[in-house]
Nucleic acid binder design. Structure first.
Lengths: 249, 249
DNA sequence: GCTTGTCAAAATGTCAGACATTTAATAGGC
DNA sequence: GCCTATTAAATGTCTGACATTTTGACAAGC
């Protein structure tokens, strides 16, 4: 694959890294394929070699490419990608049409992890944490219409992230980055009818209540109910089934 | 804090990044404090500005420092560190005496997450996965003596990582990086008497059996038993109590 | 006295060119 | 046919100069 169809004018090395990173995430190059050389990138984007090297360094850090002197640059296997890198989450969230397999993979993680996080939050949340969750919930409620989908998902995001933070654990908190690509994908599948939005809201409210009242087991159960709703909205499961999405490849 | 007591001769930019990263992780600079300037680092380590800049770029990517033109370089808050970055795990694992608070934080994560992972593995593991776990377990059994502690922890590590892989989920698999710093810390607290090693081995064996026989609930319960043992060996809880380590700060 | 504008210093960011090193392919000798 | 030396091509590194951003000092003006 060549880079003919990539837009030219950029802001800086970060913008270039995002452009190339998103192209890689979108599958413009196959794993194992050779990536364009530095000088070709310089010429195509009309930037200095410095900027290209900085951008490629970011791509290397996220595990998207692998570089060796004399050999060149190769595209890494999908299994080597550093999905937990904040840069990666940002690029992924900005994609028009992220790989459905990747969305499913991230969601499967959330489905197994988030009930535990909600349970931890119910144990550890203090007043400020609960206030943050409540504020996000209010925002979701006030934007529960198809016209305000963009603002709604932002509040949705804030709701879940606040729960991760309320777990009061550094590692879980950092994992909140994964929420953005997962929840942004909801915009694509805009099956957000009034009915589903309302159902989703009710389920979110139950998690909030469980955390506020410090009931870990209820929080765990209701969080799972939220994710079942989300799985439908993401198009991962067809209808409300009681079976969770399996992890078989 | 100055950099007077840091060793001089290095291998390359990666080695310099590790050196500085580990110094930051060890708390040689306080959060918010200004970090030495590029030219001072060049002079002290007798390397080119290029190498220094590459090393500092790695530190920036891991969230350890923050750089702004004209202002300088500052050390970030601990809460901003990218614990999930593989580089960070590697640096942490190589530390002589990692921050006990950090070890505890990572362990608290494992305590809540690993039972779920074991449960997923019991559902998703195929023959190759089980073989990998078994092989690691055999290695643990054959090195269950205080003299072979170094080799033992490697097998211990392989055991848990194999379980993460057996979950057949990209995100969980990547999180296996966190195991190394957590398990390497076991070497410091070498309370590895024959009795505790044996107890640990028995508990690991129960997890293996549950995964092999595809029993998620048993895997979840036995994985938690393994971690209770580990919590004692890490010095996180004093004695065998039925209460889990809480997440309060 | 307070504000404001300008200047200078110090730090990081960027550029361009030459050179070093590594890798892989290729041609030649035997 | 196999081994070796050479060459080409790619990434890695060094160096010096310059650009940009931030901060503080200082002086002019109201």
């Amino acid at each position: 694959m060549s880079l003919d169809h990539l837009p030219r004018h950029q802001g800086g090395a970060d913008a270039l890294a995002r452009l190339l990173g998103q192209a890689l995430l979108a599958g413009s190059w196959q794993p194992g394929e050779v990536f364009p050389r530095e000088l070709d990138l310089c010429q195509h984007f009309d930037v200095s070699r410095n900027q290209v090297r900085n951008a490629l360094a970011s791509l290397t850090a996220t595990g998207l490419i692998e570089r060796t002197a004399g050999r060149g640059t190769r595209v890494c296997q999908i299994s080597d990608w550093h999905l937990l890198d904040p840069l990666m989450s940002e690029w992924l969230a900005g994609l028009e049409a992220p790989d459905p397999k990747l969305v499913r993979e991230i969601f499967a993680f959330r489905y197994s992890a988030e009930p535990v996080v909600a349970s931890l939050a119910a144990n550890a949340a203090v007043a400020a944490d609960i206030a943050a969750i409540e504020q996000a919930f209010d925002g979701m409620r006030d934007t529960a219409s198809a016209q305000q989908a963009a603002r709604h998902v932002e509040y949705d995001l804030a709701f879940h992230e606040a729960i991760y933070r309320a777990s009061h654990n550094m590692v879980w908190r950092q994992m909140g980055h994964l929420l953005r690509p997962s929840i942004m994908a909801l915009i694509q599948h805009s099956q957000h009818s009034v009915a589903t939005l309302d159902d989703s809201l009710v389920r979110h409210g139950r998690v909030l209540a469980a955390i506020r009242e410090g009931q870990p087991q209820t929080a765990e159960r209701t969080a799972r109910e939220v994710l079942k709703r989300t799985a439908i909205d993401l198009g991962i499961v067809a209808e409300e089934a009681d079976t969770l999405p399996s992890n078989e490849c």
